[in-house]
Amino acid sequence: MSTLALKGPYWVTVRQYRRTLWLAVAAVAASLTVIGGLRIWDAQTPDPLRADGTWFPADDRASALLRWALEYTGGGMLLLPLLVGAFVAGPLIAREFESGTYTISLTQSVSPATWLRAKLLTSTTAALLTALALTGVFRIGWSGLPGTWYLKWDPAPYAALGIVLFAHLLAAVAVGALVGLLIRRTLVAMAATGVAMGVVLLVLGAFRWSFLPVKTATGPIGSALRVPVDGLMTDTGLLTASGARFDQSVCWDQVNRTPGLDGVEGDGTKLFDRCLAEHGATSQYIDYHPSSHFWPTQLIESGILLALAALAAYAAFRVLRARLP
């Protein structure tokens, strides 16, 4: 057992931040209690099956509360990288330099690289284990909600149900370490890391569905075009006879600018259809990502984040070596 015990700077790091670790354990336990309890309540009344093969909740109260709890849990998991990055940059790294307490570790026959490595490995392990536990809790609740297949593309379920959250955490730890070493002021380092990771989240969220080319389904105007089950619609519109995409807002504007017409009712419908015919709009289209794009997108985004984490970690050790040779 003694070989498994934490030693040296690893033990010191865990000892210093044991309250933070217990807070993470408490957050996981609270999430499991709430979501697990709601899942048990919802399971007391099996969900009936509709004639079309879809499920609907038998107890609206249990399903509504479970959905509400999952929304908050997923939102918290989505913000977890920002919190972890800010903690690593501030209390874990910058405060050590701001207060000068890092010198105590360096006088105990511990090299600067070993000191930093211990802090990064400890924080990374704690963050990944917390995320793994929360992912398990989220999946417990998610499995009890019928008709939620299309919601997995939303930001919070996308992160909570896949592997990309773990890559975000690795990037957050590395970026936090680099910022903490560069700034060495607790609050400023925390704010800077939060902003940096927030930008990463926003940029990846904006371009996530451009990693893979979309598929397109077409049909006559007025036909019922549907995205395949478990797919994500990204765009819809009209096509001309030549196959070019037509912005139907042109015709909407024409109807709205015509005096005496109220929307597309009555004569407005005729004017709208005539406008479409004048511009040669003959069919409609839907752009979508099929279900098979979910995991490849996760892998591509995770690869980007792991590259960012590797670069930031390398830069952090280079900065450390330059300042504490």
Rank of each mutant, 00 (worst) to 15 (best):
Y72E: 04
E98M: 02
I93S: 02
S283Q: 11
L82V: 11
L23T: 04
V264P: 01
G75D: 12
Q108G: 12
I104V: 14
A224N: 15
Q108F: 11
R257L: 13
L65I: 07
Y150Q: 09
L202C: 11
R15F: 09
L65Q: 13
D59G: 12
R185P: 04
A171W: 02
L181C: 03
F207G: 08
Y102T: 04
N256I: 14
V250R: 15
S63R: 07
P91T: 12
I104M: 14
N256M: 13
G76T: 03
A196F: 03
A156M: 05
E98P: 00
A156E: 09
L92I: 13
G205M: 08
A196T: 05
T135M: 09
L65C: 13
A160M: 06
L308K: 05
S302K: 12
D154I: 05
W149F: 08
T130C: 11
G180T: 02
L82I: 12
G8M: 05
F97H: 05
D59E: 13
D52A: 04
S292M: 08
D262N: 10
Y102W: 10
G263L: 15
A191W: 00
G36L: 06
V28D: 09
L21M: 08
V84F: 10
A51P: 03
L83A: 15
T135Y: 05
Y158G: 05
G198E: 02
L225K: 08
G136T: 03
D230A: 15
A126P: 02
T125R: 06
F166D: 00
L120G: 00
T240K: 08
L38S: 04
P91E: 12
Q16T: 14
S111A: 15
D262T: 11
Y285T: 01
P9K: 10
L212C: 09
R185K: 11
S99D: 15
I304N: 06
Q298F: 07
Y158F: 10
G141K: 03
G205P: 13
L83V: 15
L4D: 10
L165W: 01
G136W: 00
R274Y: 06
T186P: 03
V12W: 12
P46R: 00
S63F: 13
V264H: 03
K215N: 07
I93V: 15
A160K: 01
L181A: 01
P220F: 08
A126S: 04
L169W: 02
V88F: 03
A189T: 08
W142C: 02
T269M: 14
K7H: 15
L239P: 02
T101W: 13
P91Y: 13
I35L: 07
L305C: 14
T54M: 01
P155K: 01
A27E: 04
I286F: 04
A24P: 01
P228L: 10
L308D: 02
R117I: 02
T297R: 04
L232T: 10
L132D: 02
I104N: 11
Q248G: 07
Q44E: 11
R274A: 13
I183G: 10
F211N: 08
L202M: 12
T258L: 04
L225T: 08
T73L: 15
L161A: 01
R61T: 12
L212D: 07
T122R: 04
P48K: 12
L306I: 12
Q44T: 03
S249C: 06
T54Q: 08
R117Y: 01
T218A: 06
F246P: 00
